[in-house]
Amino acid sequence: VRQEELAAARAALHDLMTGKRVATVQKDGRRVEFTATSVSDLKKYIAELEVQTGM
């Protein structure tokens, strides 16, 4: 499950970095929206997932 969450989070980051205004991911069973202003929060979430998956 964590691998899927990590892939979704990375895709969301890619979307935001390429101009999409809002990206949505499932985080702990709930839907979370990230915007360009919350990229740093999304990067932290990705880092947490990488630690949890041993990457």
Rank of each mutant, 00 (worst) to 15 (best):
V1Q: 13
V1T: 14
V1I: 13
V1K: 13
R2I: 13
R2W: 14
Q3N: 12
E5Y: 07
L6Y: 04
L6I: 06
L6T: 02
L6M: 05
A7V: 11
A8C: 14
A8D: 08
A8T: 07
A9P: 00
A9S: 03
A9K: 00
A9L: 10
A9Q: 00
A11H: 08
A11D: 07
A11Q: 14
A11W: 02
A11K: 14
A12F: 02
A12E: 02
A12D: 01
L13M: 05
L13V: 02
L13S: 00
L13P: 00
L13W: 04
H14K: 10
H14N: 13
H14P: 00
D15V: 04
D15G: 05
L16E: 01
L16T: 00
M17R: 04
M17L: 13
M17A: 07
T18C: 12
T18K: 10
T18M: 13
G19V: 02
G19W: 00
G19S: 03
K20T: 10
K20M: 11
V22P: 03
V22N: 07
V22G: 05
V22Q: 07
V22D: 04
A23T: 10
T24V: 15
T24S: 12
V25N: 02
V25A: 05
Q26G: 06
Q26E: 13
Q26I: 15
K27Y: 04
K27L: 11
D28I: 01
D28R: 03
G29F: 02
G29V: 02
R30I: 14
R30L: 12
R30M: 15
R30Q: 13
V32F: 09
E33W: 04
E33A: 05
E33Y: 07
E33P: 03
F34N: 04
F34I: 07
F34V: 06
T35M: 06
T35R: 04
T35V: 06
A36L: 12
A36W: 14
A36Q: 14
A36P: 14
T37Y: 05
T37C: 11
S38D: 15
S38L: 08
V39P: 01
S40C: 11
S40L: 08
D41N: 06
D41E: 14
L42M: 02
L42R: 00
K43Q: 12
K43M: 13
K44Y: 06
Y45E: 02
I46P: 00
I46C: 02
I46S: 00
I46K: 00
I46V: 05
A47D: 08
A47C: 10
A47T: 09
E48I: 09
E48R: 06
E48A: 08
E48M: 09
L49W: 03
L49M: 06
E50K: 05
E50Y: 05
V51H: 14
V51I: 14
V51M: 15
T53I: 15
G54E: 12
G54I: 06
M55V: 15
M55P: 11
M55A: 13
